[in-house]
């Protein structure tokens, strides 16, 4: 399947280009547009981004694989990213992880059969004061308890 930026996204990128000394600076912004459109970065999209920025596709591929928030494969509709780093671990991350595993019936790195949830552990989300925390897609959920997790997941259905 081919990839093309939407008209709207192209316009936004063009406007953004004026802010930078070089078009190559639009690498991450353009890849974010791809993520926004498709939810992952396909090889076709890599070619399109490379062409748009005037850089080799291999450079785009190197960048996509460097940053953990870009995916080369689709993930679930809701990507649950539970923080695993120290403050969250000290404050009950383990319990939340176990709860999520049981509730969703999947392990870390897996997606539910209906394609709805993907469970990941991620590094520090910068919310150590409200640990434990998780992010679902772009939304942060803090001070997690099993009850709160129930509520959050309920709200997504």
């Amino acid at each position: 399947m081919g990839f093309a930026f939407t008209e709207e996204n192209l316009e936004e990128l063009e406007a953004l280009a004026k802010r930078y000394p070089s078009k190559e600076a639009l690498m991450l912004p353009a890849l974010w547009k791809v993520m926004e459109q498709d939810g992952y970065v396909s090889m076709d999209a890599i070619d399109v981004v490379a062409d748009y920025l005037g850089v080799p596709p291999m450079k785009v591929y190197g960048v996509v694989t460097f940053y953990t928030m870009f995916h080369l494969e689709p993930v679930g509709t809701y990507h649950i990213q539970l923080c695993r780093t120290l403050s969250c671990s000290l404050c009950g991350k383990g319990e939340i992880l176990q709860y999520l595993r049981n509730k969703l019936g999947i392990d870390v790195g897996e997606t539910t059969p209906d394609g709805k949830f993907t469970l990941s552990q991620v590094e520090c989300l910068g919310s150590c004061g409200t640990a434990p925390v998780m992010q679902i897609n772009d939304t942060l959920y803090e001070n997690l308890t099993p009850e709160k997790v129930d509520e959050i997941l309920e709200g997504l259905k």
């Binding site: 080799p56 596709p57 291999m58 450079k59 591929y61 190197g62 694989t65 460097f66």
Partner: peptide, 9 residues
Amino acid sequence: TNELGIVWR
């Protein structure tokens, strides 16, 4: 020719 690069980290 840019065929090679470093990937992942």
